[in-house]
């Protein structure tokens, strides 16, 4: 009989008091442990996550999403996780798609799985993102990092213990998505893309975030 794998869900959260309760409830049954990395929220994110039974790691200074994910990964590895998956705290991902994202790793077909909103037509991607921001991000990823995945900026991903140990997220900001894609390619990890649905709300990436990501990637390339 196959040995049961320990699955840990990492949720980076910053001021997510409105959605964090539902998100934790939704993922609870699909992970052995739910870890919320509270990135110095000014609202009740921490209290709500604790009351919902999640393991809460607190950043005393806001360090942004990439830093929170690395903290979560580090903790998950220290707890002996076999599989780690990242899930956004704002409710933009669907918990009933978690098994689809985990499956390739659990079946030993992949080291890392990326959710992609572009592999199906379920996500109603806003016009500017669909036709300007994401195509631009793809071009930047291709030209500067040499990677071409269908979704350059999806926060829904899963990775095996081995992959998480090798993939150190150094980009504290939103450029971590591109960094993970780049390192996956560089380390020769077996990657699979799985269609996921992204539910859009008002808190997603803005144009200025896109500019920041490109700036961070350029600087990352200059220094590495």
């Amino acid at each position: 009989m196959a040995e049961k794998k320990k699955i840990i869900c990492v949720i980076p959260a910053y001021n997510e008091e409105k959605s964090i309760r539902d998100v934790i409830k939704a993922v609870k049954g699909q992970a052995d442990e739910v870890v919320v990395v509270n990135d110095c929220s000014k609202d009740r994110t921490r209290e709500i996550a604790t009351s919902e039974g999640a393991t809460v790691l607190n950043h005393i200074i806001n360090r942004d999403q990439g830093a929170a994910l690395e903290t979560g990964n580090k903790y998950a590895l220290s707890q002996g996780a076999d599989v780690i998956y990242h899930f956004d705290a704002d409710g933009q991902h669907k918990a009933d798609e978690i098994q689809d994202v985990l499956a390739p790793i659990l079946k030993g077909r992949a080291d890392i799985v990326f959710g992609s909103r572009f592999l199906n037509k379920k996500s109603e991607v806003p016009f500017i993102k669909n036709y300007i921001l994401f195509p631009l991000a793809k071009i930047v990823n291709r030209l500067l990092l040499g990677v071409s995945f269908s979704d350059p900026q999806c926060g829904f991903r899963a990775m095996s213990r081995e992959a998480a140990s090798q993939l150190r997220i150094e980009q504290d900001g939103k450029a971590h998505c591109s960094e993970i894609l780049y390192k996956t390619h560089k380390l020769g990890l077996r990657a699979v893309e799985v269609p996921v649905t992204v539910i859009y709300n008002n808190f997603g990436l803005k144009f200025i975030d896109g500019v920041r990501i490109i700036k961070d990637i350029i600087f990352y390339k200059l220094l590495n």
């Binding site: 790691l57 607190n58 005393i60 200074i61």
Partner: peptide
């Protein structure tokens, strides 16, 4: 700074 913040959060836990 990120390293320090991370270590602190893990140590507190």
């Amino acid at each position: 700074i990120t390293k320090i913040v991370r270590e602190l959060s893990l140590q507190n836990k």
